[in-house]
Computed example of a mutant assay.
Amino acid sequence: MSIKTEQKIETCLLKNENGLKLSLINYGGRITNIEVPDRNGNFGNVVLNLDEKDYLQPNPFIGALIGRYANRIANAGFHLNEEFFKVDNNEGENCLHGGIGGFDAVFWTIEKLSDTKVLLTYDSPHLEMGFPGNLKVKVSYELTKANELKIDYYAICDMETVINLTQHSYFNLTANFGKKIIDHEVFINADAFLPISATIPTGELRAVKGGAFDFNTPKRICADINENDEQLKTAGGYDHCFILNNNPEDLSLAATAYDPESGRFLEVFTTEPGMQFYTGNSLDGSLKIPNQSGKYEKRSGFCFETQHFPDSPNQPDFPSVILQAGEEFSSTTVYKFSVKAREDQ
Rank of each mutant, 00 (worst) to 15 (best):
9 I>V: 04
13 L>T: 07
17 E>W: 07
20 L>M: 11
37 P>C: 08
41 G>W: 05
49 N>W: 10
50 L>E: 15
53 K>R: 15
55 Y>H: 12
56 L>N: 09
56 L>D: 04
60 P>H: 06
64 A>I: 02
72 R>T: 06
73 I>Y: 07
74 A>S: 12
76 A>F: 06
92 G>I: 01
96 L>P: 01
98 G>C: 09
107 F>D: 07
110 I>L: 04
113 L>T: 10
115 D>S: 06
119 L>M: 08
125 P>Q: 11
125 P>G: 06
127 L>H: 11
128 E>R: 14
129 M>C: 10
130 G>K: 10
133 G>C: 03
139 V>F: 09
146 A>T: 11
150 K>A: 13
163 I>S: 05
164 N>C: 06
170 Y>V: 01
175 A>P: 15
181 I>E: 08
181 I>F: 04
184 H>N: 11
185 E>Q: 14
187 F>N: 11
190 A>E: 14
192 A>K: 12
195 P>F: 13
200 I>Y: 15
200 I>N: 13
204 E>V: 11
204 E>Q: 13
204 E>G: 14
208 V>K: 08
209 K>G: 07
210 G>V: 14
213 F>R: 14
216 N>P: 15
223 A>K: 15
224 D>M: 13
226 N>M: 13
227 E>L: 07
233 K>S: 14
245 N>R: 15
245 N>F: 09
249 E>R: 12
252 S>V: 12
252 S>D: 07
255 A>W: 03
255 A>Y: 13
257 A>W: 10
258 Y>F: 10
270 T>C: 13
273 P>A: 09
273 P>K: 05
276 Q>D: 14
277 F>G: 01
281 N>C: 01
285 G>R: 04
287 L>S: 01
295 K>E: 08
300 S>E: 09
302 F>C: 04
308 H>F: 03
308 H>L: 05
316 P>T: 03
320 S>M: 02
320 S>T: 03
321 V>Q: 02
328 E>M: 10
331 S>Q: 03
333 T>R: 01
334 V>E: 00
340 K>T: 00
